[in-house]
């Protein structure tokens, strides 16, 4: 509310400022896009694989941030959404021979269903109750993967067919890259629009004060269902891409270690920052590859980074950028 008053007071300045910001941002985006499209020419297959992993984690982080950063709900079901998506894509390709685009949509749909399934208890319980509930939900999903052998191929997982179309660009990793990039840009772009719409404002209102939001006519239930559903959709699609990336889906990929990684990315990237999430994903999936020779300290480094962020930059990388580069400030950034 204070925000509206603030912007009307300095309206003119804001408009100019925003317009300039938009042009700058447009230019920046175009440059980024050109570089991203040309990237495969600079890297070998291994590096391309790592970059592909980064793209997937950027999508995961943005999806997780919708619930964690914008809606402000401590939900630990992210690894479950990820797994549901990976299984949906892999299994529909194996059992139903679905073509890739449909299999990816299946991942999105499965993720959305899982998201809404978690949103329903979130209407009733909050805070640590929700955290514990979602933790249990994630482990339950893993149990299902392990024990529903007939459908999920049990604990050892299964190989995902490799669509021939991905090999058309020379190496399959390169084909995957352009597919992942396209999906990620569309999905993240849509998320940015959603967050700027009245739905996004409703998420933030719920985060700031649920009761106040309700008294101002925001439907808390609807906001929660949409946020969880959309988060599940994004992370589910990311899971579908992950199935494609690895060519194999196994239950162990979607456990607590995955959750920590997702969590650390969002926290270090910054709660309520899309750009921060993307940067966090690049940093935290890239660093372990660069630090390959220091194996064994990943957990320690991630947890120390998390602690450092909590102490010294609670807004994460996104907050840092917003403070330094006004053109990149995100409208709904956590104040």
């Amino acid at each position: 509310m204070s925000k509206t008053a603030d912007s009307s007071a300095t309206g003119n300045y804001r408009v100019n400022h925003l317009a300039r910001g938009r042009t700058l941002r447009g230019l920046g985006l175009a440059t980024c896009l050109a570089l991203l499209l040309g990237l495969p020419l600079l890297v070998n297959e291994y590096q391309q694989f790592v970059v592909n992993t980064m793209v997937i984690y950027a999508l995961i982080a943005v999806g997780f941030n919708v619930v964690l950063g914008y809606l402000g709900q401590l939900a630990f079901a992210n690894a479950a959404f990820f797994g549901v998506g990976a299984y949906a894509t892999g299994l529909t390709m194996v059992h139903l021979a679905l073509p890739l685009p449909l299999a990816l949509l299946a991942a999105g749909a499965a993720g959305t269903v899982a998201g809404i399934a978690v949103a329903l208890p979130a209407l009733r319980v909050q805070g640590h109750y929700l955290a514990i509930f979602t933790l249990a939900f994630g482990e339950l999903m893993r149990w299902v993967y392990v024990h529903a052998d007939a459908v999920t191929f049990g604990p050892s997982g299964f190989n995902v067919p490799r669509p021939a179309a991905l090999g058309l660009l020379g190496s399959p990793e390169r084909g995957k890259y352009y597919l992942f990039l396209a999906v990620a840009i569309i999905a993240i772009g849509a998320t940015v629009r959603l967050l700027r719409s009245r739905f996004g404002r409703a998420f933030v209102a719920v985060r700031n004060n649920e009761r106040a939001a309700a008294s101002l006519g925001v439907s808390v239930a609807r906001a929660k269902i949409i946020a969880f559903g959309w988060s599940g959709f994004l992370v589910g699609v990311a899971g579908g891409l992950y199935a494609l990336l690895n060519g194999r889906v196994t239950p162990d990929s979607f456990g607590l270690a995955q959750l920590l990684l997702n969590f650390a990315i969002v926290m270090i990237g910054g709660l309520g920052s899309v750009l921060g999430s993307i940067l966090g994903a690049i940093l935290l999936t890239g660093a372990p590859e660069l630090l390959r020779n220091f194996a064994g300290i990943e957990e320690i480094v991630f947890s120390l980074l998390l602690i450092g962020v909590l102490f010294f930059m609670p807004k994460g990388i996104g907050g840092l950028i917003a403070a330094r580069i006004p053109a990149l400030r995100e409208p709904l950034h956590r104040e």
Partner: peptide
């Protein structure tokens, strides 16, 4: 700090101890 930060902190030190 908000509830979320405390929860995160406990998650962080749990992984720190595990890692160590």
């Amino acid at each position: 700090a908000p509830f979320l930060s405390f929860a995160m902190m406990t998650v962080a030190f749990s992984f720190l101890f595990k890692g160590l």
